[in-house]
Structures are given as structure tokens and as C-alpha cells.
Design a protein around this nucleic acid. Structure first.
Ligand SMILES: [Mn+2]
Ligand SMILES: [Mn+2]
Ligand SMILES: [Zn+2]
Ligand SMILES: [Zn+2]
Lengths: 138, 138
DNA sequence: ATCCTACAGTGGACTTTGTCTAAGTCAAAC
DNA sequence: GTTTGACTTAGACAAAGTCCACTGTAGGAT
């Protein structure tokens, strides 16, 4: 993630302890944390960081394209640092576990012109739902 | 929609003015209203209907399978009476307009076993995003 | 090294969306 | 017409997120 910090400094980001901690928390694969989860983890490293700053920083990372917003459930938005490899999500309907998945094929090609209503379609989001091995029981 | 009311009565639903009004409001094609939008429209027909009743009634319609919950944006859930024809959604990124779409192909088949992480995958939701004709400008 | 200041952070009030509960009301079975 | 349990209501409460006035500081200028 120091890649990320370098890139951000290059873009004129003022480097602060708060921003460094948020970037650290968002490190890893299959990471899809809510803003308050990010805050909870950030607080263990920098106790005085505020909720507002976490929200602000996440919002900036999203508009810089370094982090994706994912809304897999109807509850809180989740923040996904895996922004540089396009992917979709597989969600457990019971426990909420989320996995990054890479389906074959291009769903954009599956939407005929007659079903586009004159829209300029630029993106498609696919969410698979089911039960994870634990929640499926035996 | 009196089809719906008949079906619900048959299922033992007690028929009240409030439930009738909510069902009336949810009549039509390409309808994707938030709970508070449903409430606002219901109030014009039955001024004393409460928010709690609208939420309760929508929740019941969803668990009866008569209405779908769709979460196309990160804001309020939307309620979709078109529950009997499977479909996906096309959303304008700028104004939020929503259209029902019927892509060809089966996205479930596009998720290889190696990308299922042992999940029992039962459902897939596809959201297309772009700009509607109005928002794409001239 | 110190100063300066525009940018960043803070706590708290506020908003939106949704849930819950206690008390009152009424649809429908008899 | 009475009875009764399901239904409705107002308002308190909660979770997720935004906004603002004020305070603090990173990093360039001196
Ligand atoms: Mn992801
Ligand atoms: Mn729909
Ligand atoms: Zn699970
Ligand atoms: Zn539009």
C-alpha cells in the first residue's frame, strides 16, 4: 500500500497520520469494510481519529479511483481497495461474507439495443447471491 | 391490481383501507418507489396513514413475494411490483431513472466452479449503469 | 529553524432511512 | 351486535451519513 501513498502524494495529497492509517486499514484482498468498520480499526492505531475524517478520506479515495464503493446489501456502503482489477461479487445471503469473483463473458453484450431505452450504457455490476460453505450447513 | 388484492385476501390477509391504498400506489410498469415515496402518494388518498404502516405493508408484500426490494443506489430501498417477470435494471447515473431490462443469456452460467468458493449460488442481480437520453445531453 | 496559511481534522448537530413499542382501533368470524 | 386478535398509530429510537464552525498542522516560503 505504500504504492498507494506514493501515488497520492504525487497527486498533491497532503500526507497526514489519519490518511496514512485509513490507507493501511484498507490493505489486502477480499477487503470490503464499512466506513464504521474502517473507523473502528483506524482507532486502534490512532485513537483520536474522527468518524468525519474517515468518511472524508474514503470519499476522496473513491473520487480518485483508488477505492470502490460497493453496495451489496441494503445496509452500509462497503469500501473495496481492489479498484485496479475489475471484478464482481459473490455474497452469502445469511452471514454477508463477500468474495471477489471474475465471471467469464461480457454482460454488457447481453443487453440488446432494444432493451437500452436510448441510454448510453457504460458499466454493469453483477452480484451473485447464495450460501457460503459454513452457512449452507453440512 | 385487484388481482393482487384477491390473491392476498385468499391468503388470509385482513383487508384494510391502508393496505388497499399501498397496493394501489404500487400499480404499474417500471415502478420503483422508495418507502417514503409510497407513503407520500398514499397520504393523498388516505391522509392518516402512517409511515410505520407503509413500512409494515411493504415488508409483508416482499415476504409474500408480491413485491421486490431493489437497491440500485446506496440510498433508500425501492419497491418493485413487477415481481412475476424476472428482470434486471438499467439506472441513470445522473438522475436515477430506472428501467426494467431483460438481458439475453444466463449470468449464472458465466461463473465457473473455480470462482464459487464452495458457495451454493442461487441468484444473480445485474445492474446496468449509464446515462438516460435526457442526461446524456444533446 | 521558524513562520504562514491553505488545507485537513474534530466534535457535535442534523438528516435520512428504517425499526420498535405501547396503546388504541377495527375487520371479520360468530 | 359482540368479541377478539390482527392491524394501525405516534413517537421514540437507531444506524448510516452529511455538514459546519472551529481548531490544528503539513509543507512551502523565508
Ligand atoms: Mn471486491
Ligand atoms: Mn424492476
Ligand atoms: Zn455465510
Ligand atoms: Zn438521467
Amino acid at each position: 500500500m505504500s504504492d498507494l501513498l506514493e501515488r497520492l502524494r504525487g497527486r498533491g495529497w497532503r500526507m497526514t497520520a489519519q490518511r496514512r492509517v485509513v490507507a493501511e486499514v484498507l490493505n489486502g484482498e477480499h477487503v470490503h469494510l464499512t466506513a464504521d468498520e474502517v473507523h473502528a480499526r483506524a482507532v486502534t492505531k490512532l485513537p483520536e481519529i474522527s468518524r468525519a475524517t474517515v468518511y472524508n478520506t474514503l470519499g476522496e479515495l473513491v473520487s480518485l479511483g483508488e477505492v470502490l464503493e460497493v453496495t451489496t446489501d441494503k445496509r452500509a456502503k462497503r469500501y473495496d481497495p481492489n479498484a485496479h482489477r475489475p471484478h464482481h461479487h459473490l455474497v452469502c445471503a445469511r452471514c454477508g461474507a463477500i468474495r471477489d469473483v471474475h465471471p467469464t463473458g461480457n454482460p454488457l453484450a447481453d443487453l440488446p439495443d432494444t432493451e437500452r431505452f436510448g441510454f448510453t450504457v457504460s458499466d454493469v455490476e453483477v452480484t451473485y447471491r447464495g450460501l457460503c460453505p459454513d452457512c449452507a450447513g453440512a
